[in-house]
Simulated scan of single mutants.
Amino acid sequence: MDLPVEWSWLIVIGAASAAGLFYLRMTQRAEEEQRMPDPGLAIIEFGRAFPEEAIRAIHATQNGQATFLRLHDERVGLMVSHGAHYACYRFEAGQIRLDHAPDTQTLAIVFPQFAKLDGLYHFATPEAAADVSLWLLGSFRT
């Protein structure tokens, strides 16, 4: 059975459209994955800055710009993303102040020694924000 030429063009256009939509969806998915925080990267980068520190737990902010790390000796680590570069900090628990935050998924943190880090840190869940607040206040004991 031979198809008319008009139908052949419609099939070609339909296949090209489907391929284009598939490509766009795969590109969007790759971009979403790149925006998601990578705990493995936090472990590697923080380990380079502080090789003697053992990491017990990690929570990243919702946008992936900051990662908080609970360390083995009741200290708290912070890794801040600056594009392709990272700044790593280590704090004694209890040195940091928490201010009133607008919701349960957000922490308003004041770093007395590093004012440039002061600000609002948004987490994906209220549980993650609560964990980090306990670490920062030195109230988390296992």
Score class of each variant (00 low, 15 high):
1 M>A: 14
2 D>T: 08
2 D>N: 10
2 D>W: 02
3 L>S: 08
3 L>W: 14
3 L>V: 11
3 L>R: 11
4 P>A: 15
4 P>T: 15
6 E>L: 06
6 E>R: 10
8 S>I: 12
8 S>D: 08
11 I>D: 03
11 I>K: 11
12 V>D: 07
15 A>K: 01
15 A>R: 01
16 A>C: 14
18 A>L: 15
18 A>S: 11
19 A>F: 10
21 L>G: 06
21 L>F: 13
23 Y>N: 08
24 L>T: 12
24 L>I: 13
26 M>H: 11
27 T>L: 13
28 Q>Y: 07
30 A>N: 10
32 E>C: 03
32 E>M: 13
34 Q>L: 15
36 M>F: 05
37 P>R: 05
37 P>W: 01
39 P>E: 14
39 P>L: 06
39 P>F: 04
41 L>N: 11
41 L>Q: 15
41 L>V: 14
42 A>F: 06
42 A>E: 07
42 A>R: 03
43 I>S: 09
45 E>Y: 09
48 R>P: 00
49 A>I: 07
50 F>C: 05
50 F>L: 06
53 E>S: 13
53 E>D: 11
54 A>T: 15
56 R>H: 13
56 R>G: 02
56 R>Q: 15
57 A>D: 15
60 A>Y: 04
60 A>S: 15
60 A>C: 13
61 T>H: 01
61 T>E: 03
61 T>N: 02
63 N>S: 12
63 N>P: 02
65 Q>L: 06
65 Q>C: 02
66 A>W: 02
66 A>H: 09
66 A>M: 09
68 F>N: 09
69 L>M: 03
69 L>T: 01
69 L>G: 01
70 R>H: 09
70 R>E: 10
72 H>C: 07
72 H>S: 14
73 D>E: 13
73 D>Y: 01
74 E>W: 02
74 E>P: 00
78 L>I: 03
79 M>Q: 15
79 M>F: 02
79 M>N: 03
80 V>P: 01
81 S>F: 00
81 S>A: 13
82 H>I: 00
85 H>V: 02
85 H>C: 00
85 H>T: 10
86 Y>V: 05
86 Y>L: 02
89 Y>P: 02
90 R>V: 09
90 R>A: 08
91 F>H: 06
91 F>G: 04
92 E>D: 10
92 E>M: 12
93 A>Q: 06
96 I>E: 05
96 I>F: 03
98 L>Y: 01
100 H>D: 05
100 H>I: 08
101 A>H: 02
103 D>N: 15
103 D>E: 08
104 T>P: 00
104 T>A: 13
106 T>I: 03
106 T>S: 11
107 L>Y: 01
108 A>E: 06
108 A>L: 00
112 P>L: 04
112 P>N: 08
112 P>G: 06
114 F>D: 11
115 A>R: 11
116 K>A: 14
117 L>Y: 05
118 D>E: 14
118 D>W: 02
119 G>F: 03
119 G>W: 04
119 G>A: 05
120 L>D: 08
120 L>F: 09
122 H>A: 12
123 F>R: 04
123 F>S: 08
124 A>G: 03
125 T>W: 00
125 T>G: 04
125 T>P: 07
125 T>S: 13
126 P>F: 01
126 P>M: 02
130 A>S: 14
130 A>R: 12
130 A>H: 12
134 L>W: 08
136 L>S: 10
137 L>C: 09
137 L>W: 05
139 S>T: 01
140 F>M: 05
141 R>P: 00
141 R>N: 08
